[in-house]
Amino acid sequence: MRDLGLKVSGVLVVLLALELCSRTGLLSRDWFPPVTETYAELFKLAAGHPLWTEIGRTLSGWALGIALATVLAVPCGILLGSNQTAYRMTRVVIEFCRPVPSVALIPLAVLVYGVGLEMKVFLIVFVTFWPILLQVIYGVQDVDPVVRDTARAYGLPPLARFFRVTLPSAAPYIATGLRIASAIALVLAVTAELVVGAPGLGQSIVVAQSNANLPRMYALIIVTGLVGWVLNLAFQAIERRLLRWHPSQRQEVAQ
C-alpha cells in the first residue's frame, strides 16, 4: 500500500514538473504543450471510437505476428534443440538472419505485401521468430539430465517424455522468448505504421504531428506506451500463473 502511494506520488511530481516547465516557458510550447492539455486530449480520444480502432489495428498486427511466429518457431526449436546434427547445420543460418535490423526489411515487406496488415505481420514474424526459436532451443537442450533419466527409468515412452518432461521444463524459456517477442513486435508494428503509413497508432501519431495537433500527438505517444506496459503486465501475470513452480516465480508458503 505504502509502495503504491510512493509510486503514484512519483508520477504526480514528474507530471507537475513538466506542467510547470511548459507553463513558464522553460520548455517551448511550440513542441511541448502543457501536460494538462495532453491529458485532456487523451480522455477525449479515449471516449471516442477512433482511438480504440487504432489500438485494435496495431494490436491485431501484433497478435497475428506473434501467433504465427510462435507456431513456426516452437516446432523448429524443438527439432533443433533435440537434434544435434540439425542444430549444427542451421546454426550459421540462424546467426546470420537473427541480427538483420528489422527496419531494413521494410522496403521488401512493402514490395511484397503492400502497406496493410500483411506487411506488418510479415515483419513481426520475421523478426520475432528468432528470439522465440533460440529460447525454445535452449529450453529443450537444458532439460535436467537427472529428470530425463528419471522419466526413462520409470518407463515413460518417448512421446510422454516429451509432453511430461521436455515441454514443461522448457516452458520458462519459451515464456521468456514470448515476452521478448511481444516487446519487439509492438515496436515493429508501430514503426511500420510510422514509416509506411499502415493504419494503426503509429500512423495516427504521424497524422497528428502533420496537423500540428501536438496534444494529440503526445496523447497517442502515451497510449502507445500504455499498450506496451499492459502487454508486459499481461505476460508477467500469465507467467506467474503457469510457472508457479519455477524458481523465479516461487512464493513462500506457510508450513
Binding site: V146, V147, D149, T150, W245, H246
Partner: peptide, 12 residues
C-alpha cells in the same frame, strides 16, 4: 537417484 532433489519434477 543420488541427486534426489533434481529427480523430482518441480512442476508437479
Amino acid at each position: 537417484f543420488q541427486d534426489y532433489s533434481r529427480s523430482l519434477l518441480p512442476w508437479m
